[in-house]
């Protein structure tokens, strides 16, 4: 996953999620603790569109093991470094394992 693509859809994060569910994450140099998971959803698909436009081999739609369906899981969490709680959407790309923030408020 290239850096530019990460920037398009949010900021890359370090996330601590031993059982899949995020517990802590670091964003803009600060550590956040997840207090509760508000909701979770999964999305994928659209591989046929990337297939027709892609040109670089690194984020190839197809690989030896098959088609990369672009699966990602999102967690809407309440989290805070200290003080006030806020809502954050964390998204995990299922094929690369990279996390990013897609929404924060």
């Amino acid at each position: 996953m290239s850096a530019e693509r990460g920037a398009e859809r949010g900021f890359l994060l370090d996330v601590v999620a031993p059982a899949g569910e995020p517990l802590f994450f670091t964003w803009r140099g600060r550590s956040y603790r997840v207090y509760s998971v508000l909701s979770r959803w999964c999305e994928s698909g659209g591989w046929w569109q990337r297939a027709s436009t892609e040109n670089s081999p690194e984020n190839s739609t197809t690989s030896e093991s098959g088609i990369n369906d672009g699966a990602r899981t999102s967690w809407r969490v309440e989290a805070a470094p200290e003080g006030a709680l806020a809502v954050y959407d964390l998204e995990r790309d299922e094929s690369s394992g990279l996390w990013r923030i897609t929404h924060h408020g």
Binding site: W41, C42, E43, S44, G45, G46, W48, D69, A71
Partner: peptide, 13 residues
């Protein structure tokens, strides 16, 4: 042809 409109899933669950 494949299009989000015609596909019945939005993920692989």
């Amino acid at each position: 042809p494949l299009h989000y409109r015609h596909v019945e899933r939005s993920n692989g669950e």
